[in-house]
């Protein structure tokens, strides 16, 4: 079996199954947890809208912190937008998703994807440098942070290298790219990258709790 056959066959299959199993496991495991005993009366009636509000408002920095967090905030947005564009708007990726879920949507030209990919990789490196140079951030970082960075950046960097080649055969680079995606999918539900789907639950829960206490959100 060639490396590419292994990558887009068993390896990707393993990654996708691990992703599906892990995601359903984590979501259900958290949603079915028993709520803490509630011994106080709510100041305000918590509701779905309160959860939605915090999901939205926490996407922006509070005024008091705007100046201090501007740099990481911009980098964070660039990284996430870059990941979205490169993953979901590159035509070969769209065809991959079409094969999985049967849905297709318009893509962007390759040179735009490549440009966004390079920017995203650069932003990723800048975020790593910040993590390594900021004393507080460095202190609170653990293996999960660094490994999650690695498995996120690997598909981006291997994807950028494919059109450049550097003398390596296309199918070898493609296989390495797909293997890096398989690793990302396998790790995503179990590490800090699980925020991709848990972020909405955690923010929503925060919204419900704060609403109940009558706090301004």
């Amino acid at each position: 079996m060639e490396l590419l056959d292994f990558a887009r066959g068993p390896a990707l299959q393993f990654g996708l199954y691990a992703f599906v199993i892990g995601t359903v496991w984590r979501i259900l495991g958290i949603l079915l947890l028993a709520a803490k005993p509630d011994h106080s009366a709510a100041r305000k009636a918590g509701g779905f809208m309160a959860a939605l509000k915090v999901i939205y408002t926490r996407s922006f920095t509070a005024d008091a912190f705007k100046q201090d967090t501007l740099y990481p905030k911009i980098l964070g947005y660039l990284l996430h937008i870059g990941l979205f564009v490169t993953v979901f708007l590159f035509v070969p990726h769209i065809l991959f998703f079409k094969g999985l879920i049967g849905l297709e949507w318009p893509g962007l030209p390759n040179n735009i994807i490549f440009f966004v990919g390079v920017i995203t990789a650069g932003v990723g490196v800048a975020l790593l440098v910040r993590r390594l140079t900021n004393p507080v951030l460095k202190l609170i970082s653990n293996f999960d942070d660094y490994f999650s960075w690695l498995v996120t950046m690997a598909p981006i960097i291997t994807g950028i290298i494919i059109p450049i080649r550097f003398g390596v055969r296309y199918e070898t680079l493609l296989a390495v790219h797909i293997l890096s995606v398989a690793l990302l999918l396998t790790w995503l539900p179990f590490g800090k990258l699980a925020h991709a789907f848990l972020v909405f639950f955690s923010r929503g829960t925060t919204g419900l709790v704060l609403e109940r206490r009558g706090a301004k959100t």
């Binding site: 056959d5 887009r8 066959g9 990707l12 299959q13 996708l16 199954y17 599906v20 199993i21 892990g22 995601t23 359903v24 496991w25 984590r26 979501i27 259900l28 495991g29 958290i30 949603l31 079915l32 947890l33 070969p92 990726h93 065809l95 991959f96 079409k98 094969g99 999985l100």
Partner: peptide, 27 residues
Amino acid sequence: VSTARIGGGAAFGTAVAAGAAIGVAAA
């Protein structure tokens, strides 16, 4: 070329069921 060479919907259904079983057990 970029289409994945992986199993069909039944296999994913099994994966969802397995994930749900583990999640319920963990909870």
